[in-house]
Amino acid sequence: MRLLISFAALFLAVVLLQLGSGGVAPLDAISGASLGFSTEQLGLLGSAHFFGFFIGCWWAPRLMGSVGHSRAFAAFTAAGTIGILAHMLIVDPLAWSVMRMASGLCVAGCYTIIEAWLQDKVTNATRARAMGVYRVVDIAGSLGAQLMIGVLEPASYVSYNLLALLCCCAIFPLTLTRSEAPPSMVAARDASCF
């Protein structure tokens, strides 16, 4: 139990990140349809998210190795927040695709960092319990994001702003925790983050 309490900051960051970034995909689909985007353009938004996700998976270990876990988490969260906030500034399917790439980058990067942090702190005896609680927290945050879609107005600045605020709040638990971050490790192939 003591170990799980020590992960409270990580778990809170996961919930906030899921609430913010998890609602973007369904809100984009509903908003895009209400703005007259074609089905191909809506499909492009989903594909762009996973392209950003791919980049995030590649870049996260390199950035984590060069600047540390907390700073890398803050950088990825900032990218996702910017991507969410920009939606109502530029209403264009191609621009939204770039913003969704930022969202995918954020999700992949942040989850890579959180899971690396967890894996560094657990032992073989506590791994299953810690990862089980982590998955429950993650899925609960995802469910909360999906339920929020029912009350968020499509194509609204307020809706996207609320998601961006939640995503941005995910920075606080990890950057302000007293728990020591794992030591920075050089990425396997390349220590350079660019």
Rank of each mutant, 00 (worst) to 15 (best):
A33N: 06
A33T: 14
A33I: 13
A33S: 10
S34I: 14
L35W: 01
L35E: 04
G36M: 09
G36Q: 05
F37L: 15
F37D: 13
S38Q: 01
T39Q: 08
T39D: 02
E40W: 11
Q41M: 15
Q41N: 10
Q41P: 10
Q41A: 13
L42F: 03
L42Y: 01
G43P: 14
L45Q: 09
G46N: 09
G46P: 12
S47L: 12
A48C: 11
H49C: 11
F50E: 10
F50M: 15
F50V: 15
F51N: 03
F51H: 01
F51T: 00
G52V: 04
F53Q: 09
F53A: 15
F54P: 06
I55M: 03
I55V: 09
G56P: 04
G56Q: 03
C57F: 03
W58L: 15
W59R: 09
P61K: 01
P61S: 06
R62P: 00
L63Y: 04
M64W: 01
S66E: 12
V67S: 07
G68M: 11
H69F: 12
H69D: 14
H69Y: 11
S70W: 00
S70A: 11
R71M: 13
A72W: 02
F73E: 13
F73R: 05
F73K: 13
F73G: 11
A74L: 14
A74G: 06
A74T: 12
T77Y: 00
T77K: 00
A78I: 14
A79V: 12
A79Q: 07
A79W: 03
A79F: 05
G80C: 10
I84T: 13
L85I: 14
L85G: 10
A86M: 10
A86E: 12
A86Y: 04
H87G: 07
M88D: 08
M88N: 07
L89Q: 04
I90G: 07
I90Y: 11
I90K: 08
V91E: 09
D92M: 09
D92E: 12
P93I: 07
P93R: 04
A95W: 03
S97M: 08
V98R: 05
V98Y: 06
V98E: 11
M99A: 04
R100K: 09
M101W: 04
M101S: 10
A102E: 01
S103T: 13
G104D: 05
V107H: 06
A108C: 06
A108S: 13
G109Q: 06
C110Q: 08
Y111V: 14
Y111H: 10
I113C: 00
E115W: 02
E115N: 13
E115Y: 01
E115L: 12
A116W: 02
A116P: 11
L118G: 08
Q119I: 11
Q119D: 13
Q119A: 12
D120F: 10
D120E: 09
K121N: 12
K121P: 14
V122C: 06
T123E: 11
A125W: 02
A125L: 13
A125K: 08
T126Y: 07
T126I: 07
T126S: 11
T126N: 09
T126H: 04
T126P: 07
A128F: 00
R129C: 08
R129G: 14
A130Y: 00
M131Y: 06
G132T: 01
V133W: 02
Y134G: 01
Y134F: 09
G141Q: 03
G141Y: 00
G141I: 00
S142R: 04
S142W: 02
G144I: 14
Q146L: 13
Q146T: 09
L147V: 08
L147C: 02
L147Q: 04
L147F: 03
